[in-house]
């Protein structure tokens, strides 16, 4: 356990600098974009709801981009074991269980993605105050009481990122875990040349895209059961972990 803890720490430290840089860059860019969106606002402009202003500013794309960059960086950290120093051999000969090697990377990924989400949440809070301040400065017009809460329940993108209902929370975390385990499993499959594993990864991607489009859809057409799609993603994630661990244990990735 101690070895695992130490490995998680080592892996996390490696990624943390980049993660913190991504956090700062993401927050700053989003607030700049939001400010730019508000710059055109005059006393004769239409006052939009916060969630519409936020999405229109393109800020949400920046967050998705930061997640994508983080995933790419995670990939690079793993592939770096094979380049230059070939440290993968050192890893596999460490006097700790290979399960610990496997889980340390996965845990580090999940630990390091958390600051990105926390920063995103802070950005939304600051962004909301920025919009309220700007509107109050430029116009005496109306504003929405409890507008931030309403944004969180009415905006499809905020509902997916930060759900307030149990089924939404389960669904979102099933997506995050499937992304993390699937990404890692993909690397292991490629390294061990077990390409058939990609079929299951594609299945997971299809389910994730289906869930996102379902949750982004209009209430008019109803929704599928998010628990069922979450369970299917959890099952796939469990397989990715089980088989991924098997590949690492066999040393097939060397």
């Amino acid at each position: 356990m101690k070895g695992f803890y130490r490995l998680v720490n080592i892996e996390s430290i490696k990624m943390l600098k980049v993660v913190l840089l991504l956090c700062i860059a993401s927050m700053a860019t989003q607030l700049l974009l939001l400010n730019r969106e508000l710059n055109n606002f005059t006393s004769h402009s239409m006052i939009e709801r916060f969630e519409n202003t936020y999405v229109a500013s393109g800020a949400i794309v920046i967050f998705l981009l930061s997640i994508l960059l983080f995933c790419v960086y995670f990939l690079l950290t793993i592939y770096s074991h094979y380049w230059g120093s070939k440290s993968i051999y050192t890893y596999l000969t460490l006097p700790i269980k290979r399960e610990a090697v496997y889980f340390s990377k996965l845990t580090a990924f999940l630990l390091c993605i958390m600051p990105l989400f926390a920063t995103q949440l802070m950005t939304i809070f600051i962004g909301y105050e920025l919009v309220v301040w700007k509107i109050a400065n430029v116009t005496e017009g109306p504003w929405m009481n409890n507008g931030l809460f309403l944004s969180f329940i009415r905006s499809e993108s905020l509902q997916i990122l930060f759900p307030l209902t149990l089924n939404g929370i389960v669904s979102t975390w099933s997506i995050i875990i499937a992304l993390a385990t699937g990404l890692y499993y993909g690397i292991l499959c490629e390294r061990s040349r077990q390409y058939w594993g990609f079929l299951l990864i594609i299945t997971a991607i299809v389910i994730i895209l289906y869930v996102i489009s379902d949750r982004m859809g209009s209430p008019l057409y109803g929704y599928s059961n998010w628990y069922i799609t979450s369970v299917s993603l959890f099952i796939l994630s469990s397989f990715f972990i089980w088989h991924g661990m098997k590949i690492v244990k066999r040393g097939a990735i060397a």
């Binding site: 998680v8 720490n9 892996e11 996390s12 430290i13 943390l16 580090a108 630990l111 390091c112 958390m114 600051p115 989400f117 926390a118 949440l121 802070m122």
Partner: peptide, 15 residues
């Protein structure tokens, strides 16, 4: 030595 867990808990607390 404990940076990973510290960052995790700070993020969790904020969220």
């Amino acid at each position: 030595k404990h940076i990973a867990i510290i960052i995790f808990f700070i993020s969790l607390f904020i969220m």
